[in-house]
Amino acid sequence: MTTASQTRSNIERHVAVRRKPLLPAVGRRALLLSLSVLFLAYVIGPVYWVFVSSIQSEADLVSVPPNWVPDDVTLQNFHAIFFYDAKEVTYESRRIGDPATGDFIPTAAQNLLPALYNSVYVGVWVAILNVLLSLTAAYAIARIRFRGRRPTLYLILVTRAIPDIALVVPLFLVMRNFLDIVNTRESLIITYLAVTVPFTVFILINYFESIPADLGKAARVDGCSHLQVLRHVYLPVGMPAVVASLLFAFLTSWNEFVLALMLTSTIAAQTLPIVISGFVFDFTTSFSLVNAAGVVAIVPPVVLAILFERYIVSGLTAGAVKG
């Protein structure tokens, strides 16, 4: 028989354990873990599949159901891309090289490496020139109260309302008649500047506006001209936005398809997206090769994005936070 004190302590023992958290620690862990798995599957899964598809032989690849984890790994596709070996195409080799069983490497594959080089070349130049143009314009718009400031900004931003396809013919004419640089990498570089500058100007203006105005004032009083203020204050302090702009400009030009398709006609200037799209529509191309080309196109931007993730985030969102 329990005594009064024992009863009291029993009650206390039970009543004291009060207000359990909504999700007990273990439950929260499990939920987060499953969400993480879902997240990874969604975000990385498709890319993983492209990667896995590229290192299988065609025979393995076209098996039903598809292999998640390949039994046999082969690098023949990448070998074909990077060390293209012009095989003589005869009736025999064509018959043997059935796309469904692999071994047939289309001649277009040899264009991948030059296209890769073009994409890099164009991308880097666009990034550099873009930042040079945007930095000065963004600083002036953000910090100097000059007449026509608002209209200039709106003008710059509104140029992006027009879909790129509409600009193809006029741009082609500009390249041919004014500048005489049709089918060159330079024509792409200039074109991509038009495409990327508005957004980078926007990013930089946002970020610059979050930099205390007093810093610039102190620099001016110390003896800086506006250009020097940009160089000594806004460039170093605004580095995250500058990095974000560089990356964005590079990625956009790496990405770009329509304008490159229309403005270039030979591999002298064609970029990766064009060559890859050529593969997709060429039924003789093996799936694994297409995926391998995809991998080549994915790796540089993804690596850059992951490396500079922190800069991208702080550069892009400095203004958004303030609303």
Partner: peptide, 28 residues
């Protein structure tokens, strides 16, 4: 313009250049 007026200014927020050392701030 201010950089030609031979003036110096001290701000409420100090406005020190964040990526420079104290020495560089003063020497700028």
């Amino acid at each position: 313009p201010p950089h030609r007026r031979d003036i110096a200014m001290v701000f409420q927020s100090y406005a020190l250049y964040p990526q420079k050392t104290v020495y560089e701030n003063i020497a700028f």
